[in-house]
Amino acid sequence: MSLRLDVLAAILAMAVATYLCRAGGYAVLRVVRPPPFVQAMLAHLPGAIFVAFLAPVLADGGWPAWGAGAAALLVQARFRITVLAILAGVATLWLLRLAAG
């Protein structure tokens, strides 16, 4: 269980940088009142962030990943049980990869 000084410094630097991201956006908006257009954007931001995050991930995984993503989405929409949706996504990816050879 060693703790080296250079590693500790790197970890702390990572933590500070990440906290700046977490708090920075809100800290700026607490001071500056956003115009109506930005306020309207904020309502759309949550969904858009996740879609923009997932699309490249699925594209990198090819068609089995798209199928697995769709499976997770459909199971969640139908049953609203997250564990089931995650298992469906992983199982579908496994099966589709087997089918693809």
């Binding site: 630097a13 991201c21 977490r22 956006g25 809100y26 908006l29 962030i49």
Partner: peptide, 29 residues
């Protein structure tokens, strides 16, 4: 030795997506 600057910059760039999330939580925060 551990890449202090590179590791911090990586976090800054990749976690930038969290900044608009904090903004969207305004009504709660």
């Amino acid at each position: 030795p551990a890449p202090i600057l590179a590791a911090a910059l990586t976090c800054l760039v990749i976690n930038l997506r969290l900044a608009p999330m904090g903004v969207a939580l305004g009504p709660v925060l």
